[in-house]
C-alpha cells in the first residue's frame, strides 16, 4: 500500500509541475490578431512601412525614366520615442519591399564595413585580383532614405492616448531635393497607468 501511495504522490507531483509550466505557442505572421502592446511592436513597424511603401509606389517618383533602378542609401532614422527600439526594423522592411519592386538597389557601404575595407585587398599578393574591386567601381547612391519616429502621450478621459508618428523622406542626392515624403500615424488607447518604455 505504501508503495502505491508513493507512486501516486510522485505522479501527482509530476502532473502539478506539468500544469505549472508555461506554454509557448507560435503565432501565424499573416493572421496575427493577438492583443496589441502599448509600446511599439513588430506589427506597428509592418503597418507603418507598408503604408509608406504603398505611397512610394503609388506616387511613381521612384520610377526612373529609363526604367533602371535608383541606387539608394539608408541614411539616419532618428528614434525620438521613450522606447529603446531598433529603427532598422522600419528601414529594413522598406528596403526589402523597394528592392523587390525592382525600382531601387540599395548600397550597403554605410552599414557593411567590408564594402570599403575590401579595397585593401588590392595591396595583397595573397588574393587573386580578379575578384578584387577595382578603384572607382562602387555605385554611388543617388537617393537617400531618412526619417524619424516620435511619440506623444496624453491622458484623455482617464485613458492614455499614445501617438506614434513615422516620418520618412527620400532625397535626391544630386540636388538635395526631396522627391518623396510620407508620414504614418499609429494611435493607441491604453490604461492610464500603462508604461510604454
Amino acid at each position: 500500500m505504501k508503495q502505491y501511495m508513493k507512486i501516486l504522490s510522485s505522479l501527482l507531483m509530476v502532473m502539478t509541475l506539468n500544469a505549472c509550466a508555461t506554454q509557448t505557442v507560435l503565432i501565424d505572421n499573416e493572421n496575427d490578431s493577438t492583443e496589441r502592446a502599448a509600446a511599439l511592436e513588430g506589427r506597428d513597424f509592418e503597418m507603418a512601412s507598408n503604408a509608406m511603401i504603398q505611397d512610394m509606389l503609388d506616387m511613381g517618383t521612384l520610377s526612373k525614366p529609363n526604367g533602371q533602378p535608383y541606387i539608394l542609401v539608408i541614411s539616419r532614422i532618428e528614434n525620438d520615442t521613450m522606447q529603446r527600439i531598433d529603427v532598422d526594423e522600419l528601414s529594413k522592411a522598406i528596403r526589402i519591399a523597394l528592392m523587390k519592386s525592382g525600382k531601387v538597389r540599395v548600397t550597403a557601404f554605410k552599414e557593411d564595413d567590408m564594402v570599403m575595407s575590401s579595397s585593401q585587398l588590392r595591396k595583397s599578393k595573397e588574393f587573386n585580383q580578379a575578384n578584387v574591386r577595382k578603384a572607382g567601381s562602387l555605385a554611388a547612391p543617388e537617393l537617400s532614405l531618412s526619417g524619424k519616429i516620435t511619440q506623444r502621450e496624453f491622458i484623455v478621459s482617464g485613458k492614455k492616448r499614445i501617438e506614434y508618428r513615422f516620418s520618412m523622406s527620400i532625397t535626391d542626392l544630386k540636388n538635395g531635393l526631396t522627391i518623396w515624403e510620407g508620414e504614418e500615424k499609429i494611435k493607441k488607447l491604453a490604461d492610464k497607468d500603462t508604461v510604454t518604455w
Binding site: 505557442v25 507560435l26 503565432i27 501565424d28 505572421n29 493572421n31 496575427d32 490578431s33 493577438t34
Partner: peptide, 8 residues
C-alpha cells in the same frame, strides 16, 4: 475574422 493567429 482572421482568428487569433495562434498556431495550435
Amino acid at each position: 475574422d482572421i482568428g487569433d493567429g495562434i498556431i495550435e
